[in-house]
Design a protein around this nucleic acid. Structure first.
Lengths: 195, 195
DNA sequence: GTCTATAAGCAGATAGAC
DNA sequence: GTCTATCTGCTTATAGAC
């Protein structure tokens, strides 16, 4: 599929891969230029500075997480359906690309002030809706903060610790993918048993 | 190698703080020297290269996690006690220093080959003991891989995502610390209900 | 828009006196 | 062990021709 991407988009794409792997300080403009098939001068023509390029990459990456969370928290679905959807979508997405997860976690902690900036922008998540719903749809007066924290934790941790868990549990690539797939129903049953 | 020097210890300590915050590529030898109260030449006298210093810092940080996990997995305690101890110790330790967590996660993913090296060394964790114990002490034929993954996930995620969770849940420093404390019993009850 | 060449500055590492 | 001065190479960024 030969879609003529603009140079701008091509750069953003390859820059993502480099920044995911090496972070802001470790990435090299030369390497990004090489991967994009242009030279450094052209790269600086499209993005004045490295930081500027980095910011574009980060915002895009962050948005891919916050939008999914916002979707779950703000939709009209019943709670159990919401949870089930979140688990499935998150695990499927991270199976395709877990590099983005480490990247966002790291940068969010290296530069936490950025969060304020990003949260002020569009697509804000409204936690109060979720809280009300938990109150209405659970029988056990579940703490919504705990439930939400668990939901995200159980889904993303196996990707964060993937290299070390694979090693510890002695699983190869295929066995680990099966493990991740199995976790979907395991997580759902854990979360729903709390309601 | 004789490493009983005070300067040696001081350097390792301040280097940790810098590397935790900025990673290998982002850290500056000058900054480490300044914080340690020496100059760059002296720094290179004690640690020939930046990588060498980094490796020492990383191994120490990694060991602080793996030793606690090994302790839990290999001890003679009943399963429920083990789990309870792990939750308490992990949350207490991370309350004091969460920077180390982000650091280890990042470097473990940036350079996963390092794991092989470290796992081959001392203090290796033996997962099979834990597996046998779960089989013996649980009534529901619980999947030990899942249980272990959940245990770690539920404890460390609130520290990984601390800045963003604080923002989302609208908690200040004190409220967040209370939340973390509350999680101890919440997590234990979640895990034990699975057994 | 695209390129070559180069400026400007920084960071890791060493030489060598004391 | 400790210091000053310096080397060397790399990296971002720009100037300017086409």
């Amino acid at each position: 599929m030969e879609k003529t991407n603009t140079a701008y988009e091509t750069i953003l794409h390859v820059a993502s891969e480099i920044f995911y792997k090496k972070g802001l300080a470790g990435a090299r403009m030369q390497e990004i230029a090489d991967l994009a098939g242009i030279n450094k001068a052209m790269l600086h023509y499209y993005f004045k500075t490295k930081e500027q390029l980095f910011n574009q990459v980060f915002e895009k990456a962050f948005f891919s997480f916050s939008s999914r969370i916002a979707e779950v928290l703000n939709s009209e679905e019943p709670l159990k359906i919401k949870i089930s959807n979140y688990v499935d979508h998150t695990i499927d997405a991270l199976k395709l690309n877990r590099g983005i997860l480490i990247f966002v976690i790291y940068e969010l902690n290296v530069n936490p002030e950025r969060i304020t900036e990003l949260f002020a922008g569009k697509g804000n998540v409204d936690f109060s809706i979720f809280k009300k719903q938990v109150k209405a749809e659970s029988k056990n007066e579940v703490n919504a903060d705990m439930l939400f924290t668990d939901m995200v934790a159980l889904c993303i941790y196996p990707f964060i610790a993937q290299p070390i868990l694979k090693k510890m549990m002695n699983k190869d690539e295929i066995a680990y993918r099966d493990f991740l797939e199995e976790r979907k129903s395991w997580i759902k049953s854990t979360l729903i048993s709390r309601l």
